[in-house]
Nucleic acid binder design. Structure first.
Lengths: 129, 129
DNA sequence: TCAAACCATCACATTGATGTGAAGGTCAAC
DNA sequence: GTTGACCTTCACATCAATGTGATGGTTTGA
C-alpha cells in the first residue's frame, strides 16, 4: 500500500510517516517510480509507534525497543548486547514509574469526577468548599 | 523556602520552577526583596507536576486538573463547570488509554528481557533467530 | 491530452519543555 | 567592604514532534 492509504488507516499524517522512516522506525520498500510501498504489517507497527510516542517515549528509544516487541516472539540475539539489555531494563522501569504515576493521578481524577457527580445527583452530601 | 532549596528538594532546575510558575502551575509568594517564597506543600505539588509532565500531559491540562487532585479532597464547585467536567473525563480516558498502551509495551519488554535472561542462563532453550 | 489526485523532496515554521548565559540586585560571612 | 552564593529578569538556543507549503514527477480517468 502507498503512503496515503497507510496514513488513512492509521490516522497518521503522511508527514509523520516520512518522519518515522527518517528516524529509522519503519523501512518501506520503494516502487520503481520512487513511491513508498508499505507492507500490511506496518499498520500495526505504526499504531504501536504512535502508542509509544504518546506514552512519552522518544523515537530514539522506540527504535531500540521495537525489534523486541515483535510478534511472534523472536529473540534477536544480535541486538541483545549488554548495553541494549541495560537500556531495556531502564526503560521498563521508567515505564513502570510512568504507569504508577498515571494510574495514581487518573484515579484521583476519577474520584473527583465521581464525587462531583455524586454531589450533583444528591445535593445533601456534605463537602467542604 | 526559596527557589534553590525547592530545586534541590524536588530535583528540578530553577529554570523549570520559574517556567511552571509562568504556566500558572504554582503561585509562590514574594519576599520584600523580590525573591520567590515557596510553601512547604509545594514540594509535593512540584513532584506531582513532574510526574504528570513525565506522563505526557501538557502544562495546559495539568493546570486544569491540579486543583482536583488536592488532598485533603475538597470539591471546588467553582471550577466544576460542564466544560471542566468534560475536559476531566476526556483526560481521564486518555490517561487510561496511555496506561494500557504503556502496560502492554512494558510487559512485552519485560517478557523479552525474561526470555533473554532465560536463554542466557540456559543455552538449551530453543529459539528462532 | 488535460485535470485531479496521488506521490516525491526540501525547507522553513511552530510548539512545548528545556538549557544557558548575560546583566544586575541581595545577603551572609569573613 | 568585598567576595561568593544566592536571587531577579530577559533573551536567545535547542530538541523532538509536528505543520505547512513550494516545486515538480506519476498515474488515472474523462
Amino acid at each position: 500500500m502507498r503512503i496515503g492509504e497507510l496514513a488513512e488507516r492509521t490516522g497518521t499524517p503522511r508527514r509523520l510517516l516520512r518522519y518515522y522512516e527518517e528516524q529509522g522506525l519503519i523501512l518501506p520498500e520503494r516502487c520503481a517510480n520512487g513511491y513508498r510501498a508499505y507492507d500490511e504489517r506496518l499498520v500495526d507497527r505504526v499504531m504501536q509507534i504512535r502508542g509509544l510516542l504518546d506514552a512519552g517515549l522518544p523515537t530514539r528509544i522506540i527504535k531500540q525497543i521495537l525489534p523486541c516487541l515483535d510478534r511472534p516472539r523472536i529473540i534477536h540475539f544480535s541486538d541483545a548486547t549488554p548495553e541494549m539489555i541495560a537500556t531495556l531494563e531502564h526503560e521498563r522501569d521508567r515505564m513502570t514509574e510512568r504507569i504508577q504515576s498515571l494510574t495514581r493521578n487518573r484515579d484521583a481524577i476519577a474520584d473527583y469526577l465521581d464525587t462531583v457527580r455524586l454531589t450533583q445527583d444528591d445535593p445533601g452530601v456534605a463537602t467542604r468548599s
